[in-house]
Every structure is written in structure tokens, then in C-alpha cells.
Amino acid sequence: MADRTESSVVVEAAPAQVLAVIADFAAYPEWTGAVKQAEVVSTGTAGRAEQVRFVLDAGAIKDTYTLAYEWDVAKSGTGTVSWELVEAETVLKALDGSYTLEGDKAGPTTVTYQLMVDVRIPMLGMLKRKAEKSIIATALQELKKRAEG
């Protein structure tokens, strides 16, 4: 598996508040630029999403795909939310990543985002890393704005 790209941001909000934004998949089209639709396909025993179907339109990359989620988080909101691609219709071959939330109960929260993307079309590794960095930077900025708003 390819190396993951990673970046972090400090969010002026409690970890539980940041986690609530991450877990609210139905709202993703409101605050993420590329996700046009998000639907929870199945939930686990704790009521959290296990699988989520997304419709993505990120310019050159358009796809409909399903991610499987794992929630290793405390009641305070700290911990890790990770996902892996389980199916994609056209372009994506892998879309595996995680958010790790760290901080005091009242905040602020340090959010570290790791991502590994692979596509079915030929692409230089350098261009893939650049795309991953762009995706991560945008996602962290949008998450920060939503959680602090």
C-alpha cells in the first residue's frame, strides 16, 4: 500500500463537537465542496455509521463510492475515526484515511487527517501526493470552519 499523506489543524472547539461534525454525514454537502451527496447505508450497534455512500464531484475526479468506518473514540470525542473504500463505480481504487482527535474535554482540538488515494487511471505518484495534500488541506479548513461556526 502506498504511503499516506498527513496534516493537522487546531480547531477552537471541544473534541466532542468536532466529532459530531465528522459523524453528521447528511450535512457533508453543506460544508464540503466536493461531496454532493452522502447517505448512511448501515449503522453499528452504537448508532454510528458503519458504511456511507458518497457522490463526489472534485473536478477531474467524479465518482460514487462507499466507505466503511471504524469509530475508536471516547465519550469526550477524542480518538480516531478511520475509513476504507469498499466499493467505487468509476475512478477510485483506494480512499483510506482517518481523523485523529486530541485535546482537552473543553478544547481546543488537534485534528490529524491521514489519507491514501489511488485511482484507476494512470497518474504519477507525485501528482497523487499533490492531490492528497490538496484534499486534506481543504477538508481540514472546511472541518475547522464548520466546527468553529
Rank of each mutant, 00 (worst) to 15 (best):
A131G: 12
E132N: 04
A60M: 11
L56D: 02
D96S: 01
D24L: 04
Q37V: 02
R146I: 06
A27V: 08
I22H: 02
G97R: 06
R53S: 05
V9P: 06
A46T: 09
M123L: 15
T100M: 07
T110L: 11
D63T: 12
V41H: 05
T5F: 03
A106N: 09
L19N: 04
P29I: 00
L101T: 03
D3H: 08
Q37Y: 04
P29K: 00
K144N: 07
V41S: 03
S134Q: 12
K105A: 15
V40P: 00
K133H: 15
V18L: 13
A14K: 13
V35I: 15
L19A: 05
L143V: 09
I135E: 08
A68W: 00
A23N: 13
A106D: 14
S76K: 06
V73D: 01
A60P: 12
K145D: 06
I61A: 11
A20I: 07
E142R: 03
P15Q: 05
E39W: 00
M126K: 11
G149I: 09
Y28S: 07
K145H: 07
A60S: 12
L140T: 02
S7C: 05
Q17F: 04
A147D: 07
A16E: 10
T43M: 02
T43F: 04
T45I: 06
K62T: 11
T110P: 12
D118L: 10
A16C: 06
S8M: 10
V9R: 03
A74L: 12
K36D: 01
E142S: 14
E84A: 12
E12A: 15
V91M: 13
G125Q: 05
L101M: 09
R48I: 03
A20E: 14
G33H: 10
L92Q: 01
A13Q: 07
I22M: 09
V21N: 10
V10Y: 06
E142V: 10
A88T: 02
V10P: 04
T138S: 13
Q17P: 05
T32C: 01
A27G: 09
L92A: 00
A147M: 07
T138D: 08
M126R: 13
W71T: 05
E12C: 10
A26Y: 06
T78G: 09
W83G: 00
V21P: 14
R129V: 15
T112C: 03
D118E: 15
P29H: 00
T64D: 02
A58N: 11
K130F: 14
V73R: 12
P15V: 03
P122G: 01
G97I: 07
K133S: 14
K130P: 04
K105T: 09
D24E: 11
A46W: 03
D57K: 11
E39Y: 01
V111D: 01
T32L: 15
E132C: 00
E102V: 09
T80A: 14
G44T: 06
V18I: 08
T78W: 02
G44F: 09
G103F: 07
D72M: 06
D72P: 05
T66I: 14
T109H: 07
G97D: 08
K130Y: 10
K93Y: 00
A58C: 03
S42I: 01
L85P: 04
R129Q: 15
A38W: 07
T80H: 10
F54W: 08
V10D: 09
K36P: 03
E148S: 06
V11P: 03
G79I: 05
W31R: 07
G107P: 08
A20G: 14
A139S: 14
D63H: 02
L95M: 06
